[in-house]
Design a protein around this nucleic acid. Structure first.
Lengths: 106, 106
DNA sequence: TGCCTATTTGGCCAATATTGCAAATAGGAG
DNA sequence: CTCCTATTTGCAATATTGGCCAAATAGGCA
C-alpha cells in the first residue's frame, strides 16, 4: 500500500470512527432533528456533560457537526446529513445477519 | 436513554466501528472488486497475515463480509456493498472541511 | 502417515479511546 | 465585581484496539 493511499484511508477512517460509537450515534440522531445545545444532548446521552462535550468536539474535528455559541450556550448542528444514510445500510446488514442466523438454526 | 435504544445503538456502532479502520477500509475496497483470499488481502494491506485474518474475522462477525473455504484457501466476499456508499459521504465531509479551512485562512 | 501451504488463534504489548471528576473558562444578570 | 449557569479542558483510571510472533488448525498431496 503506497503512502498516499494510506493517508487517504486514514482520513476516511477518522470520520467513520467518529460515527462508530453508540453515544456519538445517539448525538447524531438527536442532531438530525435540529440543532441542540450541549445540555440537551447530555440529557439524551446520559453521560457526564464533559464526556458529551468531548464527543461533540471529536465530531466537530472531523467535520460532521458545527457549533454556534449564542449567549452562554453552544448549539450544535449536523453538518453532514448524508451520514444518516449510513443507518439504512447498517440496518440492512443487521437484518441480513439475523436472516443468516435463522438459516443456520433451521 | 432506555436500554433497548442503547442496545440498538451499540449494535449499529459495532458495524460502523468495523468500517472505521484504515486497514479494514482497504480490505473492503479490495473486496469491492470481487472475492479475494486472505493471502491476497494480506499483500494489499501489508500487515501480518494474522492481523489481516483478525480484521476479516471482525468484518465477518458484524456481517459485512462472508467467507468461503475452498481447498486450503479462504475466500472473502463483500456482503454489504452498500457500505461503499459511505465513501461518497465521507469524501464530501472531507471536501467540506477543506473548504472551511480555506475560508478560515482567507 | 508426513510434509507443505493457508489460515486462525492465543498471548502479549504499545498505542489509543472512553469516561468521570475537578478545575478552568466564558457569558449573562444583578 | 460577584454570582450563577453552560461548556470546555486537564488529569487519571480503565477499557479497547491493532499489531506481531509463535503455536495450533485445516486441507491437499505424496
Amino acid at each position: 500500500m503506497d503512502a498516499e493511499r494510506q493517508i487517504k484511508l486514514e482520513a476516511r477512517a477518522r470520520i467513520l470512527k467518529a460515527v462508530g460509537n453508540a453515544s456519538r450515534l445517539l448525538i447524531l440522531e438527536e442532531l438530525a432533528q435540529g440543532e441542540k445545545c450541549v445540555a440537551d444532548l447530555t440529557k439524551a446521552v446520559g453521560s457526564d456533560i464533559s464526556t458529551v462535550s468531548k464527543h461533540l468536539s471529536l465530531l466537530k474535528s472531523v467535520g460532521l457537526v458545527n457549533d454556534d455559541k449564542r449567549g452562554n450556550q453552544v448549539f450544535y448542528t449536523l453538518l453532514a446529513p448524508c451520514v444518516l444514510n449510513f443507518f439504512d445500510c447498517v440496518e440492512s446488514v443487521l437484518e441480513a445477519r439475523v436472516q443468516h442466523q435463522i438459516e443456520m438454526i433451521g
